[in-house]
Structures are given as C-alpha cells and as structure tokens.
Amino acid sequence: MAETAPNPTQRSKPKNVRSRLLLAQLLVILVVLPYLANLIGQPALTSLATRIIILAIAAASLNLIMGYAGLASFGHAAWYGIGAYVVGILYRHSVSGDPLFGLPLGADQLLITLPAAIIVAGLFAAVFGALALRTSGVQFIMITLAFAQMIFFFFVALKAYGGDDGLIIRRRNALPFLDTRDGLTFYWICLTVAVVWYAILSRIVGSRFGRVLEGIRQSERRMAAMGVRTYGYKLVACIISGMGAGLAGALMANHMRFVSPDMMHWTQSGEFMFMVILGGSGTLLGPAFGAAGLIGLESLLAAWTENWQVILGPLLVLAILFTRGGLSGLARMIRGGARG
C-alpha cells in the first residue's frame, strides 16, 4: 500500500518494522506458553495467561479513548462488568427457563453471549458516554468514576441476580465443536478473540477516524478550526471502547465462571488505566504488555506476601513519577536513548 502513496510518512516505516517484529515475538511466546507451562510443571500459568489476555482486551479498548483520543476514563470497569453480567444473566435464564423482559431470552452459547455482551456494553457506553463527554479534563475523570460507581451500586442492589454475592456460572458457555471447559481450549479461544480485537483496533487507529482521535488528543481547538465537530468522534470512540470492555468482561465471566459487582469496582478501573499507562499509552501493543506487567507483578508480590499492595502502591507511584510512558519509558531510560 505504501508504494502507491506519493508521500508516505517516512518516520513510521522503521517503527512499523520494529512493532511487527515485536508482534511476531509476542505471538510465538503466546503460542508456546501453555506447552511450556506444562513442561515446567506449572499448568496454572495457562490460567494466569488467559486472565492476562482477557484483561489485555479491556486495556486495549481503554487505550483507544485514553491513549489515542486523550480521554482519561476512570470508569472502564463498568463496561467490563456489564459484559460479564450479560453472560451471567443470560446463563441464569437459560438454566431456569424464566423469561427475561417477558421474552424467552437466555443463552449459554458463546456465539450468542459474546455479541450480546458487546452490544449491551456498547449501549450503556453510548448513554453514559454521551453525558460524560459534556465535560472534559478533570471533570471527565471524576464523572466517569462516579457513573461507574453508580452502575456498581446498581448491581449491588440487584438482588434478583445475586446482589453483592454475584452470580455463579456452573458451566462455561459452549462453542460448537470445541470443549470450552478445557482450560487449554479456552486459552486458545481467548487468544484468538484477542488477536482479532487487536487487529480491529489497529485498523481503527490507522484509519481516518483514528487520525481524528489522535488530533483530538493533541489539540481539540485545532480540530475545531479544521471544521471537525469532535463530540461525535469521541462518543463513537467511547462506544467502541465500551464494546471491547464488554467483550473482555464476557470472556472473564466464562473464565472465572463467576460474576460479581467486584468486577466493576473502581479499583478495577484504576488497574485498567495503569495497564495502559505502564505499557505505553497510545501504542497498539502497549496495553497487552501493561496487562502482563501489572498482573504478573501482582501475582509475584501476592505469592510473596499477603500485604502485597503495600509494595505495589509505592511501585506504581514510582512508575508514574519517574518513568514517563511506563515500561516503554523505562526501557528507553535504560537504553539511555531518551529523546525527551
């Protein structure tokens, strides 16, 4: 494609090569990982990797609005939790046979529940995003946090679906020809979904729409002077982002076979933000590395001491204070090639 363009942006070329190389390495690691885990006698690693992959989907979705469009949403866990609840509620009805909204709804098929979760999360993101986008800056951070908290309280109060205690999903949603109950199979499913989602995001980011989002991050005033009404673009980005989070939530509900309001606790939103920042916001693969880094670190610390947060907290503070751009910033600092 680059050959047909009269003026391809030259600087992106080596960067592209490097990121493709990184992508290839990452995929190889992810494909080998479950076998390696069995080989070294740590099969639980596959489950941990599944969790990371799922969270990486949610983090990448947040990255679209936070990293590319510069909208710091502190409520991402709400869409994630809603996606999970869609799976939980549909499962519950498929088991009990009770009508949902007076209709015989209920599903335990992944091919139904995943799209349903994506759509419902997207709808919620559309409504709340439309309101939250009336603000900007610090108000946007506060209001997304508050709205997510509101949704959290809603599910806490939703006694019909377990309230505080959440919902247990006895069996993972099924897929034709595949045994989703098998941990390894489920790992492959999540990995495939993640690869597809990242591929979609990479197209979006490189598209005209993505260019507008990056413009909005850098100077919203300039975008207006170009004749661009930014609100619609930000809203659509919020919806796509919410859909991705819903997708991740639906997978996580299947992975854990459990849904509870804790999934949309505000600290979960904070963790998503950290994944984006630590991995390098506004880069395609950053959130994946951020998710792996944060969850890996948490697991390591938790294995060491039950009071791991007392160490994680200050580490995160240090990461923000001294490595701008998270892991990639750290890597750049170590290489000594920091350009500013």
Binding site: I277, Q309, P314, L316, I320
Partner: peptide
C-alpha cells in the same frame, strides 16, 4: 490520578 491511586493502595 494514577499516582494518588497508588498511594491509596
């Protein structure tokens, strides 16, 4: 926000 989030933990 993120740094003070770390402080809360």
């Amino acid at each position: 926000v993120l740094a003070t989030f770390g402080l809360i933990l």
